[in-house]
Structures are given as C-alpha cells and as structure tokens.
Amino acid sequence: MDFSGLINDFGPLTVSGLAQGAIIALFALGYTLVYGVLRLINFAHSEVFLMGTYACLFVWGLFGLDQNSAAPSVGLMLLYLVIGLVGAIIASGATALAVELVAYRPLRRRNAPPLAFLITAIGASLFISELTGVLTHRNQKGVPPVIQAKPLFTIGDTTVTNLQLLIIVLALVMMFLLDRFINGSRLGRGIRAVAQNPDSAALMGVNKSRVIGLVFLLGGLMAGVAAVMYNLKIGVTRYDAGFLLGIDAFAAAVLGGIGNLRGALLGGLLLGVLQAYAAGLFGSQWLHAASFVLLVVILLFRPTGLLGESLGRARA
C-alpha cells in the first residue's frame, strides 16, 4: 500500500480518472439504454465499441495517417477529429443495429426466454471480436498522434492536458444531448413509454420495433464517441479492447443503477476515479479487483445501484 503516493498524486490521479471515467460512462450508456427498454444485458455492446475504435483508425488511415505520422496543425486536428468521430459513429451504430437484427429481433418474434437473448448476444460478441482477432493476427494497432497531449493549465500542482479536458467535455456534451433527446423529444417519449410498459406503449401507437432499433442505435452512437476518445487516450487498440473495457462499463452502469442515464454518468465517473486511486494505492494490477469489491459493497447497501433503475420512471 502506497498512501504517500496516493496523497502526492491525488490531483493528477483524479483528473486522469475522470477522463477514463468519462469514456466508461459513454460506453455504459449503451448497456443502460438497452437494459432500460428490453431488460436485457446487451453482451455484444463491447464489440459495438470495438468496431468504433477500428473504424476510426481505418478512416484516419485513408487520410494517410499512421502511428508514425507527425502531429497535425490545429485546423487539421479538428478536421481529423470530426472525421474520426463520424467514421466511428457510423461503424458503431451500424454494428449495434446489425446485432439487434441478427441476435435480438428473431428471438423477440418467438418470445424466447431472457437467457436465450444473452446467449445470442454472447455469440455475436464472440463472432465479431474473434474475427477481428484473426484478421488482425491478434496484434495491437497503434493510433496516429492526432492530438498530442499538452498541458493546458494547472490548478495547484495538478496539470490538466488538452486531451483530458476534451474527453471530459465531449462526454458531458454527449450526455447532455442524449438526456435532452430522451426526456425532451417525441422519439424520446416513445422510448420512455416502451421502457415503462411495452404493451401499453404498443397499444398507444408506439412502434415498438422501431423504438428498440433506435435504442440500439443511440447506444452505438455513444459507443462510437467513446471509441474515438479511447483511441486518443490509450494510443492502441486490440481485438479484446472492447471486452476488457466493457466489463468496466457494465460495472459502471450497474453501479449507477442500470437503466438510468444519469446513473451511468455518475457510475462511470466514480468508477474511473476510484480505479485511478486504487491503481495509485495498490498498483495498477489491482485496479479491477478494487472496483469490483467496491461494486459489491455498494450493491449490498443499495441493491439497485446508486440512483436506482429508472429509464421508464424518468421525471415526466
């Protein structure tokens, strides 16, 4: 145990934890959205994220960027960022919809038991990640230095880099947009209605299939944004990147209360920060163990997560 390390690095650990947590939170939204509406864990969501990371690299590759290229100027940097985001969002959204069509819709038609959905999602997840693994020879792929982390400003002895700030702000903006969409728009009202009671919603003229497709798509979009930020922060991606971060994201969704959008944000940020502290205190190999112990302790006292489950019961 390294208490002095934790106390000395408290500021930097907090900031890097928040950045990691922001990525986890966006990723966790996909789990929470699907769970809120279907009451099912979308196991294949980790691969939705994975496709985002590779699509982003692919698009940057089209522009001749690889991990050895020089850092671009500010204008180009923004352009690349937007292009990468668009590419990742399209790929992740398409993957999410494909998963819905192949692994979920046929079972829903037959009113299969919930476990069957879990298994088809596991099958889809295995298929995508293993195919990626074989096609990339299980090597990791480096990310071009589109954004170089530069210290932006300092609070006390804590330096915040432009990358960390970008990640946190972008995540908050995406969260805000999603929250407005779900709680403020007509389509969002449809989603909340189906989450509350699918049959009544169908009787009231909500197209259930379309709402479910929309929910998968929204989760995919958020995962796409998370994928680009992950690329920029971590600098490499691999065929199992989605699976490993997916466990964190799922834990974050449960921590905040699965099915609850704001819970996902809270859970993600909390988990990111706590993992950073745990890494500082015990060493980075214990980071996941610490976060799971914490999860168990919190669930003991609040069995439905910090904010409770409530996509359907969201404020009217």
């Binding site: 079972l107 037959r110 088809t120 596991i122 099958g123 997840s125 295995l126 298929f127 293993e130």
Partner: peptide
C-alpha cells in the same frame, strides 16, 4: 477461426431453438 465460427453457430442454434 474456431471461436468466430462457434459464435455464429451459437446464434444459429439459439435462433432456431430458443
């Protein structure tokens, strides 16, 4: 490709026999 194929097989079995 064993696990990729396996993933596909799982989906097919579950869709046909939930």
């Amino acid at each position: 490709y064993r696990f990729a194929l396996f993933g596909a097989v799982i989906i097919i079995i579950m869709v046909l026999r939930p």
